[in-house]
Design a binder for these strands. Structure first.
Lengths: 332, 332
DNA sequence: TTGTAAGCGTTATCAG
DNA sequence: CTGATAACGCTTACAA
């Protein structure tokens, strides 16, 4: 293994100064086309690539985008189930533009420098967000609305999804529809709950207080609240859960109560985790495009870095109703 | 926001030279206790932390550990389901020692420098491994045996897990036990398959060729192979799948065939994904300690970096049989 | 035990 | 358009 070539090697090879090499390789204006080409070729020939550390020292640009995965959507490892795919998409998209995601474990650890940060699973007022902003680092929140200037937002159409779910059940004839909400202190939970209420009202459904349960996205909470619902004097004929994990647990609770999910009680989840299609019965759910969520977040981060003046974007990603066997005709 | 303090600020504050500050903060030998303390205090007071970029330039140490998630365990995003939790554990453990995981998207992108790499979901002979090794960067393979000198290995006890599964079914009275294997070209798939064959023989089970099916860890392959098994003249009374995803799909195929999983056909999976416990019936499976896998891999990586002479470790992580309702008494 | 000074590989500021 | 050259913040011989 020979040493890694430096900018000096390229300069010598191309017969120019290192300054020119730097300019040429960074697509600066003031370089003649001929020179630029010669430098490019020399670099390619030598297999040269800039040393990110050196670049960072000189320019303040690291090529790193921090990704912080919080756990406000339930126990930390639960978040990972959902965010894994998002993460993969972020990584992929970032890589296309020469950036690399730095996975930040928990708060505190802001040791490394990075050009931008993508946060998920954090409360809107998490102190971490302020800390990052104070360093003049732009942010992208996925389902997190960062209350700082240079912050973009990407999130699913939570309200639209719940509307689709309720409308679907209503169309099947269901009139007694309950909701198991996610944590109310975060966007995804609050938005879905509110949309549920609104839609129920719009459709003129009776909505006893008992029909709106508070979970935390976790299967445990879904199981618990479903049991409560089934124990009601007049149990619902359909349940809209704010997460697939809760919906899956609802299926279990329903089976165990001697009822048959899909036939006796319809269930609709939210997320479309891989496990949704594998459930028995397969789970009707609102699919979030996690791939898109990640790609858009990464794109927003890159834009924030490379075009400091462009206004931060706010993007809502459409969701989709995926009908499977867990939802069926209502009994009246 | 004031400027980030540098080593010079600390030096001035402590009344010493920057060299001494550097030594003190890096726990080098030759620094008097008094000085060391004074420097420490000054640094703390100023809120100083080293700039990783500068450190990297000067010393070749970046504080970064690359994590490469390949897709040899099925479609890329499938890998993520399993690896998400591992990733979280890696991040956590790395953070404890001041390292940060860099998520490498795909091959090629080795732009950034890093002190070590952890690879998962890669074939043993993936060219990426060679590339990394050529840069004198140590490796840790999770279920990947890197054929290079400075490489550690961490993996579950695949063989032990399959033994547990088969023994469990045998103890329940099952004699016609089939296996749906994972991809044979990778450690996890091959090791489990071999262990299955061996254990079946040890127990004196009849093992027609038809009873050993080849899947690829994905639910689709699990579904397909289960259908084949059920269509046999003499179908098995129990199935050991090499992944939970395949096992979950097996449950579906069994239900759809009019049989009842757990009662008519027992199923045991491998992994203990969150979805396993939520299946209907809940899935008996071999639990891999993904938390431990990640933590150990991170520990190994750190050791490889900080103690270049220590021999690379090979660690096998124990697995555990989790009995749920999908396995029940065999019919003879 | 501590200070001086020479890099490390780029970028950026000036002249030319 | 191009070339010197000074940072950038830290590590590390080499001296003292």
């Amino acid at each position: 293994m020979s040493e890694r070539p430096t900018i000096h090697d390229v300069a010598r090879e191309a017969g120019v100064s290192i300054a020119t090499v730097s300019r040429a390789l960074n697509d600066k204006e003031d370089v003649s086309l001929a020179t630029r080409e010669r430098v490019r070729e020399a670099a390619r020939g030598l297999g040269y690539t800039v040393d990110p550390a050196a670049r960072a020292l000189g320019s303040q640009r690291t090529g790193l985008v921090a990704v912080v995965v919080g756990d406000n959507a339930g126990p930390r490892d639960l978040s990972v189930i959902f965010f894994g795919k998002v993460l993969a998409a972020i990584s992929r998209r970032l890589g296309q533009d020469g950036y690399e995601p730095l996975l930040l474990s928990e708060r505190g650890d802001l040791g490394h420098r990075f050009d931008a940060a993508i946060v998920i699973g954090l409360d809107d007022d998490d102190p971490l967000i302020g800390e990052v902003a104070e360093r003049h680092v732009p942010l992208v929140g996925i389902d997190v609305r960062c209350p700082v200037p240079r912050a973009a937002y990407v999130g699913s159409d939570h309200a639209g999804g719940v509307r689709l779910a309720v409308a679907h059940l209503h169309a099947l004839g269901h009139r007694r529809i309950a909701h198991i909400a996610g944590a109310a202190n975060i966007t995804a939970g609050a938005a879905r709950l509110e949309a549920f209420r609104r839609e129920a009202e719009r459709l003129g459904l009776q909505l006893p207080d008992d029909y709106v349960r508070t979970g935390d996205f976790s299967s445990a909470s879904g199981y618990r609240e479903t049991c409560e619902l089934l124990a009601l004097a007049e149990p619902p004929t359909a349940i809209v859960a704010a997460s697939d994990l809760m919906a899956l647990a609802a299926l279990q609770a329903i089976w165990e109560s001697g009822r048959r999910p899909g036939r006796d009680v319809a269930v609709v989840g939210f997320d479309d985790l891989e496990a949704a299609a594998l459930a028995h019965p397969p789970l009707t759910t609102i699919r979030q495009d996690r791939q898109e969520l990640g790609a858009l977040a990464a794109t927003a981060a890159i834009e924030l870095v490379e075009r400091p003046d462009a206004p931060p974007r706010v993007t809502v990603v459409p969701v989709e109703l995926v009908v499977r066997a867990s939802s069926a005709r209502g009994d009246r």
